[in-house]
Amino acid sequence: MTSHRLGWAPYALLLPSLAFLAIFFAVPMVSAFGLAFQDASGAWGLASIRRMLGDAQFREALLTTLVLIVAIIPVQFALALAMALVINAKLKGAGLWLYVYALPLGISDLAAGITFFAIFTERGWLNSGLEGLGLIERPFIFLNYQTPFWLIFAVVLAESWRATAIIMVNLVAGLQGIPRDYLEAADVFGATLWQKIRRVILPLLRPSIQVSLILRTILAFQAFAVVIALAGSGLTVLSSEAYRWYGEYRDPNVAAAYAAFILVLSVVSTLLFLWLLPVRREQVG
């Protein structure tokens, strides 16, 4: 409103963040793209992209990544919404639940992966528990490359435990932005709890849901540490292929091609969510 009188000050204040973004995001991104379109000798071309697409692991990595996204995101949203509603109900001790729910946010993803490894491994807590209860006679091997279902199950569980709170925080903020009158109007006009959630809360939460979906999907495309910790090489995702090409095959160009591919997928999914869940101005209170 009064920016014309502030002159250069706002831009000067933006400068540090711009510099940060340029140095740590823009430059690496551009150089990664540059690497992806060069071969080992530094010649420009599609050779590295072709090697990535032709890689035996490529299809499996892409498929696993997509399966993880499809499995994790609905579970996380249902959980996050339930948690957010519990917190927003303002019952006694609801504040405590916020901390309990948010606790995994303070744990690094590798540590989370190792924690769940300790649960699912051959002599882990789950097997000890089941044996103790007499439900099984000898340890069941969950984390085996021959049983991808259990590998994916463990990764979905660990990722859900670790990252649901991010969505919850977003949804709680969104819920708190919904005027109480709307919810009370729903009550007065006969909505049951489920009708209230479906017909009033979810539509009004749309902006928060959209942001969380975008954020969560981008993070899921980058899933790495939890997969490595739980499955080792038994399960491969796009980012672990990038790591393998860089670390094992010493080929930064193909690794960069994977990185660029993940970025493209992230952008496409973001655009998809923006298109599927448009937030129209006249529909926001």
Partner: peptide, 28 residues
């Protein structure tokens, strides 16, 4: 509230922003 056979006009009106006028009136 929904078992009391009442209707209410709120001070803020509480007209749902995500629904059209028709759907607002039809809500109950």
């Amino acid at each position: 509230p929904r078992r009391r056979d009442i209707a209410m006009v709120f001070q803020s009106y509480a007209v749902f922003p995500h629904l059209t006028v028709f759907e607002n009136i039809a809500f109950g």
